[in-house]
Design a protein around this nucleic acid. Structure first.
Length: 475
RNA sequence: GCUCCGGUGGUGUAGUCCGGUUAAGCAUACUGCCCUCUCAAGGCAGUGAUCCCGGGUUCAAAUCCCGGCCGGAGCACCA
């Protein structure tokens, strides 16, 4: 087995890669690596009506980001001629036929378990197969069907379509080709030809396994092992374009990298790192059980990875001012990380006015002593609405004391943090799916490059998303 | 409706194929303690599953068989 395993990841380039794709490729890759084998990235581009060049690139980028390195990259469309000839061969061997019935009629017959006339006479099929490829038929006029059993218990075996005529422009082949294989035909043939030893797919294809292997059998092609696993989706975060596209079209969601979406771009923008996604995916195992894993599990993996490399900064939500009587102008040097000095320090000039978070302010009572982290202790002497007054109260750090983050009045920028929540609640769009936290951050935060991970102390881990905006990764 | 596939502590899983030294491992969540100038990370400890239910086979079943219940998927000229 060692060195002989070949797996493949066959995405259709018809959309942006999402967490579901991540699960599939990571499993494909890990499996191949485990046995010192190879991974093929094969764009399953057999439907010109759906594929777009943009998505080939988007998928490639997504994999790059995930750190997945395919050994071979190809398109199903590269092999279109070979697929055509295997299709013809199958018809010649009486394993398939050309059907000219309407889609409606077939649906009806399929439901009743009855065959149509087209499949009966092999000579007819031989005559039609030439016409099928020479342009005699228009789109929807004829189709190549697998000769199965219209009464089979497994409905996937009731003469499924193998090739159809599509008059569209294909991103790779333009209008050169108009006879396109369906997934049912292309997948097994390509897997076999590509030398795939272990073909993995999600469990909704289970019923098609019989078809997959029967096609290979009739064509005399080698059969790979088939391994299935459940789809990955998070509660409230749909992966289907059906549920996302309307929100984008209506402007409810700005783009495909909106932090609420499960696209890889979204995860990246939100501050998740590839290593965490990989660990998470691997923790799910290859199981058929259909469950929605908890998002918190992914967060936990991510947190452990970014914690040691995220600078600690201060952000105060819904700021409330505090006047500290007697505080002098000073320039403080704050540590960027509690334990790792390598993350450096920053300077903050502070005077007698600071801001703390609204929630903290609300909990303060006259007489309370609190620690302003990395600065000093203060005692509250007055709490009039929006203005709290305090006096210096020494510098001894007591374990029992409440410690809060703060920002100096002369060192602040207006700051906004997006807090993504579940996109859907049940079948309904969650109108509160994007919470916005407004407040002040240290000016230092505005100088950080977009994409850096930070932890706003006592607030959460965030990904810098602009000069004065960040996205909350998780707590 | 028909067919197929699943069902292990709150959650996600390992183990199930080749039934027995684990009456159930890991992760996450939760609780407590330690550490800590964070409600983070780290350390330690703990709560928590008679392995969906009911039968059967067996000296022995989470593991095999039968029935039931619950959940999911497929039934496209999409993949």
């Amino acid at each position: 087995m060692q060195g002989k395993v070949i797996t493949r990841f066959p995405p259709e380039p018809n959309g942006y890669p999402h967490i579901g794709h991540a699960k599939a490729v990571i499993i494909d890759e890990e499996y191949a690596r485990m046995y010192g084998g190879k991974l093929i990235l094969r764009f399953d581009d057999t439907n010109p009506a759906k594929e777009e060049l943009e998505y080939y690139e988007a998928i490639q980028e997504g994999l790059d980001w995930l750190g997945v390195k395919p050994d071979i990259i190809k398109n199903t469309s590269d092999d279109i001629e070979q697929l055509h000839s295997y299709g013809k061969k199958l018809v010649e061997a009486d394993g398939a036929y050309v059907c000219t019935c309407s889609q409606e009629r077939m649906r009806d017959l399929r439901a009743k378990g009855l065959p149509c006339e087209c499949r009966a006479d092999h000579a007819t099929a031989m005559d039609r197969i030439k016409k099928f490829f020479d342009g005699s038929y228009q789109q929807n006029q004829a189709i190549i069907r697998f000769k199965g059993d219209m009464a089979d218990q497994n409905t996937a075996m009731r003469d499924p379509a193998l090739f159809r005529i599509i008059e569209g422009e294909h991103p790779k082949l333009g209008k050169k080709v108009r006879v396109w294989p369906t997934y049912d035909f292309a997948a097994p043939v390509e897997d076999s030809l590509d030398g795939v030893t272990h073909a993995m797919r999600t469990k909704e294809y289970e019923l098609r396994n019989e078809l997959y292997f029967e096609i290979l059998h009739r064509l005399g092609l080698r059969r790979p092992e088939m391994i299935e696993f459940s789809r990955l989706e998070f509660e409230g975060v749909p992966v289907s374009k059906r549920k996302i596209r309307p929100l984008i079209d209506s402007g409810t969601i700005e783009s495909w990298d909106d932090p609420r979406l499960p696209t890889l771009k979204s995860f990246k923008r939100r501050g998740f790192v590839p290593a965490a996604i990989r660990k998470f995916v691997l923790s799910l195992g290859i199981t058929l059980a259909e469950t929605k894993p908890p998002f918190e599990a992914l967060e936990a993996f991510n947190r452990k990875i970014i914690d040691p490399i995220s600078p600690r900064l201060f952000f105060v939500r819904n700021p409330v001012s505090i006047r500290i009587d007697g505080a002098k102008e000073a320039s403080l040097v704050l540590k960027n990380h509690p334990t790792d000095a390598a993350l450096g320090t920053r300077q903050v000039s502070v005077g007698d006015e600071i801001f703390i978070a609204g929630d903290d302010a609300a909990s303060l009572r006259v007489g309370d002593e609190v620690r302003l982290i990395e600065y000093c202790n203060i005692r509250i002497v007055g709490t009039n609405k929006d203005a709290i007054s305090a006096v210096l109260a020494g510098d001894e750090i007591k374990q029992s004391m409440k410690k809060i983050q703060w920002v100096a009045k002369n060192d602040i920028v207006e700051y906004r943090i997006l807090i993504p929540k579940e996109l859907y609640i049940g079948e309904e769009y969650n109108t509160n799916s994007l919470e916005i936290a407004n407040g002040f951050a240290e000016t230092f935060a505005s100088k950080l490059k977009p994409d850096t991970s930070v932890q706003f102390v006592r607030f959460g881990f965030c990904r810098i998303d602009g000069a004065n905006a960040a996205i909350m990764t998780h707590r």
